[in-house]
């Protein structure tokens, strides 16, 4: 990216201006995410840097908002912090409950999305797959269709999933999926599937189909071939697809607002309520924790991607 030696003075000026522009855009990208971190340690309930914070006075900083994440919703938040206090926090604190729900729903929907999605990606990347393009377009569509439309459709369907069968003259009663964990898990699995399909088919692009034939000619049945030959090679893609699906579920709020009951309070929903009602720096504390969480996920995915490229010999590293 150095200036070539034949550059005119005007081009040199433009080059430095260009670098400055790029720095500014990177700043625009990353500053909003970084700025909430120090603000979450604000001792005052404000969303800006106080005098004390700017002069690095320790009194200007506190961890009270992180503490409030634990105490909010507890039965006895002011009791001595012994085992029973922690048990109270584990059982009653709203943010802790929300985190537990988010993880349960995220993990279950990821398992559904990843297993079905990987299987389908294997089929889609076979050259003899019929209607490949159309089917692929249908499977990716949950990512494209506006979330509000998906959530609206799911709202009606999940309140009475058996309504469909009335077309065939049946009138069964099968309860409702709305307001249940199963409903939210299925909805989130649907939304996560496109990400699994995209990442796993991308991994399979460089996959040598003759490896499967070689395994079969050596006497392996399809199941053994899949677990001993195919799976180890596409595993990095499957894992990053699973992480994408997990993040999709972990971050999803519209479908939860429409189909979840009061029991399925997740972190995004709790944040949504917090932002809409009375925004407090406690939201910034949650946001900071979530940013740290996404940094961890991003690192994992990047490492996996490089490993996958190395395995498949796509990059010269």
């Amino acid at each position: 990216m150095a200036v070539p030696s034949y550059a005119t003075p005007l081009e040199r000026v433009w080059h430095y201006a260009y670098v400055a522009i790029c720095v500014a855009i990177f700043f625009f990208l990353i500053a909003p995410i970084i700025v909430i971190m120090p603000l979450s340690f604000n001792a005052e309930p404000y969303f800006t840097f106080t005098e004390k914070m700017l002069s690095f006075d320790p009194e200007g900083y506190s961890t009270r908002w992180y503490d409030s994440l634990l105490t909010f919703g507890m039965q006895a938040p002011d009791a001595a912090r012994d085992m029973s206090w922690w048990a109270d926090a584990w059982a009653n604190a709203k943010w802790v409950k929300a985190a537990k729900n988010s993880i349960i729903i995220g993990v279950c929907s990821t398992i559904v999305a990843t297993s079905l999605g990987t299987l389908a990606a294997l089929g889609l990347s076979r050259p003899e797959m019929p209607f490949r393009r159309t089917i692929m377009a249908i499977l990716i569509s949950p990512m494209i269709v506006p979330l509000i439309i998906t959530a609206t459709g799911m709202f009606f369907f999940y309140s009475n999933p058996c309504e469909l069968l009335t077309i065939f003259g049946l009138n069964p009663q099968c309860g409702k999926l709305a307001g249940s964990y199963l409903g939210v898990i299925l909805a989130h699995a649907t939304l996560g599937i496109p990400f699994v399909i995209i990442t796993v088919t991308a991994t399979l692009v460089g996959f040598d189909q003759s490896l499967n034939r070689a395994a079969a000619s050596l006497g392996a049945n399809p199941r053994v071939t899949f677990f001993r030959v195919t799976m180890p090679l596409i595993l990095p893609g499957v894992v990053s697809g699973a992480l994408f699906a997990f993040v999709t579920s972990f971050d999803e709020v519209v479908a939860v607002l429409f189909i979840a009951g009061p029991e399925q309070q997740t972190i995004p929903r709790q944040m949504w309520n917090g932002i809409r009602e009375q925004i407090s720096p406690a939201i910034l504390a949650v946001a900071t924790l979530l940013v740290i969480f996404s940094i961890a996920l991003l690192t994992t995915v990047e490492l996996l991607r490089r490993r996958s490229e190395r395995i498949r010999g796509l990059s010269p590293q």
């Binding site: 700025v35 909430i36 971050d251 944040m271 932002i275 925004i279 946001a287 979530l290 940013v291 940094i295």
Partner: peptide, 14 residues
């Protein structure tokens, strides 16, 4: 990779 709500919140703060 950062949550949509987190990014929206940061803009509200800024």
């Amino acid at each position: 990779w950062t949550s949509l709500l987190v990014r929206t919140t940061s803009w509200m703060v800024l």
